[in-house]
């Protein structure tokens, strides 16, 4: 099977240096095919809606909502138009955070519906399918921007 990354070592590390990044091994959560699906879903939904969808997969700490909102502030670009989907598989929690401008086009009720379909897929062990379907629902709900601003 072909690999996307060249992981063969050309390292000159000694005892006193750290190994090169290629020698640390890649933390493979998703296969490259799954990564491509996620990438396409994120890019297409962002392009269609003009909102900025980002996806966080990892631990969210104890008040998951607070951590997700903190992450949303760091999501880059115009955060008012940003939508963060934060999935914490270890805690079995998914949080959707919408900025103030995004929330007008994505009411909480629509987010809850997308979250419901995501959790259904997650409960079946299908992380990528749930994420892609949730993104599709959110972008369908948000629709096209009323005016394109460049």
């Amino acid at each position: 099977m072909t690999r996307a990354l060249e992981v063969e070592s050309h390292d000159t590390a000694t005892h006193s240096t750290l190994p090169a990044r290629t020698d640390e091994g890649i933390d493979q959560i998703f296969s490259f095919r799954e990564l491509a699906r996620i990438d396409e879903a994120l890019t297409m939904s962002s392009r269609e809606t003009g909102l900025r969808f980002t996806l966080y997969v990892g631990d969210l700490g104890t008040p998951t909502r607070a951590r997700a909102e903190e992450l949303h502030a760091y999501s880059g670009g115009n955060t008012a138009e940003a939508v963060l989907i934060a999935v914490s598989p270890g805690q079995r929690v998914v949080e959707v955070v919408t900025g103030s401008a995004a929330a007008r086009r994505l009411p909480d009720r629509a987010c809850a519906l997308a979250v419901l379909s995501m959790t259904t897929a997650f409960a079946g062990g299908d992380l990528v399918g749930g994420i892609v379907n949730g993104l599709r629902q959110l972008s369908d709900q948000a629709g096209r921007p009323s005016h394109r601003h460049h």
């Binding site: 939904s45 996806l55 966080y56 631990d59 394109r148 601003h149």
Partner: peptide, 18 residues
């Protein structure tokens, strides 16, 4: 348990409206 490092996926930079 989820032992992976947290990751953050973003859309391609040119995809967003702005």
């Amino acid at each position: 348990p989820w032992t992976h490092e947290p990751v953050w996926y973003e859309p391609h930079p040119e995809a967003t409206g702005h």
